[in-house]
């Protein structure tokens, strides 16, 4: 019985939150990795792009709520998300046209494009803060739980409760659908194939008549879509705060690099590696230990690292991978 209780505690505090967080990171990292594969630079503005998409979604959600539209048990934000996606994609396409295209034509060094993306990051940062401010915004509505801890305890008679929040289920379902659609697009459609060809070998792709501008446009559109979905899911699951989204840049980049920059499969794997490492290392294991080894009574919470050091986890994994396997787990673009 204690073993079951320990397993339930583990699922409740590590597996489910880790999986949801991993899915959010994976979606973010997919955007970064796609831009890297096609445009060949690390986009520092990605975190703020996520914030922008989420901000638009929140705005539309508020409007929908004010006119009385809702999705019942599901959060209204899901209904508003398409608007956020369209706005973000348009914004990214406009940025590409006004800012990035010039440097692409010049064939500027990747590091220049990174600095340019820092400029874009500043602008998006300012725009988001001007419109929605820096405060925490909770915009999840509808039902909170699919299974609440108490229901679970009543139903199973176990001591330990297991809660499954709606936002976690939505995150996982949406992530699976999005990733499936993305891979279908990349492998089964002509456009997707030409994108992969362009990412693998630009010159060869150009020779075979693939239009580079078209590929770039689609890459931005996909990145905008993925960024908004990732941002909205993260916001529903936790809450929306512009600075947090900026800070997400680090685990997202870590995920993309750990998986291998330019490799979509790698980005997903990297997202889960980073998320589970963060959650397991910062989780206080006392609860699980109480069930497994009740005779041993430690004085601490059995937490390996304070939660505030979660950046250190992504970072340590990142450095380890870079030192021992610079191309990432899935052989992305070479170091």
């Amino acid at each position: 019985m204690d073993l079951v209780n320990a397993l339930v505690a583990l699922t409740n505090f590590v597996l489910i939150p880790g999986a949801a967080y991993g899915a959010q990171l994976a979606l973010g990292a997919l955007g970064v990795t796609l831009i890297y594969g096609i445009l060949r630079f690390s986009n520092f503005a990605h975190g703020d792009t996520m914030a922008f998409g989420t901000m638009v979604t929140i705005g539309v959600t508020w409007w929908l709520q004010s006119v009385g539209v809702s999705l019942g048990p599901l959060p209204t934000a899901l209904l508003a998300m398409p608007v956020g996606i369209v706005a973000t994609v348009l914004l990214l396409l406009a940025t590409d046209r006004v800012v990035y295209r010039f440097y692409r034509k010049q064939r500027a060094a990747p590091v220049i494009l990174v600095i340019v993306s820092i400029g874009v990051m500043f602008i998006l940062n300012g725009v988001v803060r001007i419109f929605i401010g820096t405060d925490n915004q909770v915009f999840a509505d509808g039902a909170r739980f699919v299974i609440s801890a108490r229901d679970f305890r009543d139903a199973t008679g176990l001591e330990e409760g297991l809660a499954l929040r709606v936002s976690q289920v939505i995150t996982l379902v949406t992530a699976i659908v999005t990733v499936a659609a993305l891979f279908w697009f990349l492998t089964k459609t002509r456009t997707g194939t030409s994108m992969r060809a362009y990412s693998d070998n630009e010159d060869l792709a150009l020779l075979s008549g693939i239009s580079p501008e078209r590929v770039v446009i689609i890459a931005w559109a996909l990145a905008g879509t993925l960024a908004t979905i990732a941002g909205v899911l993260y916001g529903l699951d936790k809450s929306f705060m512009p600075f947090t989204y900026f800070q997400l840049l680090l685990p997202i980049f870590a995920a993309a690099i750990v998986g291998g920059l330019g490799s979509p499969i790698g980005a997903i794997a990297g997202g889960f590696v980073i998320a589970f490492s963060e959650v397991t290392l910062t989780y206080a294991w006392l609860k699980v230990q109480e069930y497994l080894l009740p005779s041993w009574q430690p004085d601490g919470l059995l937490q390996l690292l304070a939660t505030e050091y979660k950046f250190a986890v992504s970072f340590a994994i990142l450095v380890t991978v870079l030192i021992f396997r610079p191309t990432g787990l899935f052989r992305g673009k070479s170091a």
Binding site: F41, V111, V114, L250, A254, F311, F315, P326
Partner: peptide, 17 residues
């Protein structure tokens, strides 16, 4: 010795830590 954008991410992380 890492490529320039890897160094950037690494230093960004160090500063946060």
């Amino acid at each position: 010795g890492l490529r320039s954008d890897y160094l950037a991410i690494a230093t960004l992380g160090i500063a946060e830590i």
